[in-house]
């Protein structure tokens, strides 16, 4: 494995940002629906960013704009210094819905990015086998997506994402449908790979514990229209061991703090303090 093993920068503000949101706002349906407003955010190369906030607060919208699937209504999204104006092929995107191709078997689906890259057939077969083992899908290569459970399809989508090895990973609740053990295995693997290969990650989750466990920084959003409410630097070592994290008082304290931050907006008719329009 080649690649710089630069540890993820904890001091994101000092490094040259890889992804930058500048006053980003996005409205849909001719302005009837405002998804995000005035988002300013810099992501350093190699940084693992977790995004949390109430449902429908535009976290996925930010990922879509980073991928260049659509453009912001106001402001701009920059990637490596350039404005994202079209499909951004330097990112890989694992969406909430797996979007596996129903006419391909699981192995065929994972092979898609390798085929596009023009890798030789035998190499593809070996790589697919390795990735299926990694996500615990050994023996299911010949099954079609429609024959599998949601969790298995998620894992296949994850294997497909790893197969094309993009510089930046955009992940939208990738582990939501998994059982706790499989989730931990994949979290550990994701964290390990990202550190090893210096990946930059934008990771959307509803799970507060997961946001703290994985993130270098955790961005908390307000409810719609989504704005950055608070950016929390997770005070845990970059090479933290996720398997014993649950016994770590520092981790528990941070989870607790994040919980408290997120709880008020859930109650009806209480707006986030100081953010009234």
């Amino acid at each position: 494995m080649p690649g710089p093993t630069a540890p993820p920068s904890r001091k994101s503000s000092e490094a040259l940002p890889l992804i930058e949101f500048r006053n980003v706002g996005k409205t849909f349906a001719r302005g009837a629906l405002e998804a995000v407003r005035d988002v300013n955010l810099s992501v350093a190369p190699g940084e693992f960013l977790t995004l949390v906030g109430p449902s429908g607060c535009g976290k996925s919208t930010l990922l879509n704009m980073t991928a260049g699937l659509f453009l912001p209504t106001t402001g701009e999204v920059r990637y490596a210094g350039a404005v994202v104006a079209d499909i951004n092929v330097r990112v890989g995107y694992m969406t909430q819905v797996d979007h596996l191709l129903p006419w391909r078997t699981l192995a065929g689906n994972i092979a898609v990015p390798l085929e596009i890259a023009g890798r030789p057939k035998r190499e593809i077969a070996a790589e697919v086998e390795r990735l299926m083992t990694l996500v615990g899908l050994t023996g299911f290569g010949a099954s079609y997506p429609s024959q599998l459970s949601g969790g298995m399809r998620k894992r296949a989508a994850l294997a497909r994402l790893f197969a094309y090895d993009p510089e930046t990973l955009l992940m939208d609740e990738p582990f939501a449908a998994l059982d706790a053990q499989m989730r931990l295995v994949l979290q550990v693997e994701l964290k390990r790979l990202c550190r090893l290969l210096g990946k930059t990650v934008l990771f959307v989750t509803h799970d507060v514990d997961e946001a703290v466990a994985l993130g270098d920084r955790c961005i908390v959003f307000t409810s719609r229209p989504g704005r950055v409410r608070q950016a929390i630097t997770v005070d845990l070592p970059g090479d933290r061991d996720l398997r014993v994290l649950r016994y770590d008082p520092a981790y528990l304290a941070q989870c607790g703090a994040l919980w408290r931050l997120l709880t008020p907006p859930v109650e009806p008719a209480v707006a986030p303090q100081g953010r009234r329009e």
Partner: peptide, 15 residues
């Protein structure tokens, strides 16, 4: 969506 996902994987029109 499927087309967008593949384009992110650097797929060209033939792919």
């Amino acid at each position: 969506e499927q087309i967008a996902i593949l384009r992110l994987m650097k797929a060209n029109e033939r792919h």
